[in-house]
Computed example of a mutant assay.
Amino acid sequence: MPELRSALASSYAVGAFGLKQEPPAVILRECAPRCLIQLSGWPDSFGLICERITSHLAVRVPVDCLTATAHENVTIFRVGPTRLWLVCGGDCGHRLRDFFAAFDATEAVVTEIDHSRTVIRVRGPEVRTLLNRGLPIDLENGAFPEHVFVQSVIHHVPVLVHRLPSQTDPVFDLYVPREYAVTFWEWLIEAAAPLGGRVEGKEA
Rank of each mutant, 00 (worst) to 15 (best):
P2K: 11
L4Y: 04
L4I: 13
L4M: 11
R5T: 10
S6Q: 08
S6T: 12
S6L: 01
L8Y: 00
V14K: 14
G15R: 12
A16M: 14
A16V: 09
F17V: 06
L19R: 15
Q21M: 13
P23H: 08
P24C: 05
C31P: 06
A32M: 02
L36P: 00
I37Q: 07
I37E: 09
I37R: 12
Q38S: 15
L39K: 11
S40V: 12
F46L: 09
R52L: 14
I53K: 10
H56L: 11
A58T: 05
V59N: 10
R60P: 10
V61W: 03
P62L: 04
D64Y: 01
D64T: 03
C65D: 11
T67I: 11
A68T: 01
A68Y: 02
A68W: 01
H71R: 09
E72Y: 06
E72L: 07
T75W: 04
R78I: 00
G80N: 08
P81R: 04
P81M: 01
R83W: 00
L84G: 01
W85E: 05
L86P: 02
V87P: 01
G90H: 05
G93L: 02
H94Y: 11
L96K: 00
A101E: 06
A101S: 13
A105T: 15
A105M: 11
T106M: 14
E107G: 06
E107I: 08
V110N: 02
V110T: 02
E112N: 13
S116L: 12
S116K: 09
T118P: 02
I120R: 00
P125I: 01
P125H: 03
E126K: 15
R128P: 03
G134N: 05
I137H: 12
I137T: 13
D138A: 07
F144Y: 14
H147S: 15
F149K: 08
V150N: 04
V150T: 13
S152E: 09
V153N: 14
V157I: 14
V157S: 12
P158I: 05
V159K: 05
H162A: 13
H162C: 12
L164I: 05
S166H: 10
S166R: 14
Q167E: 11
Q167T: 09
D169P: 06
D173E: 12
L174I: 00
Y175D: 02
R178V: 03
R178S: 08
Y180G: 03
V182A: 05
V182Q: 10
F184G: 04
F184Q: 06
W185L: 00
W187K: 08
L188K: 00
I189F: 02
I189N: 09
E190A: 15
E190W: 03
A191P: 03
A192C: 13
A193E: 07
A193H: 07
P194C: 03
G196E: 00
G197K: 04
R198C: 08
R198W: 03
G201W: 02
K202E: 13
K202W: 02
K202R: 15
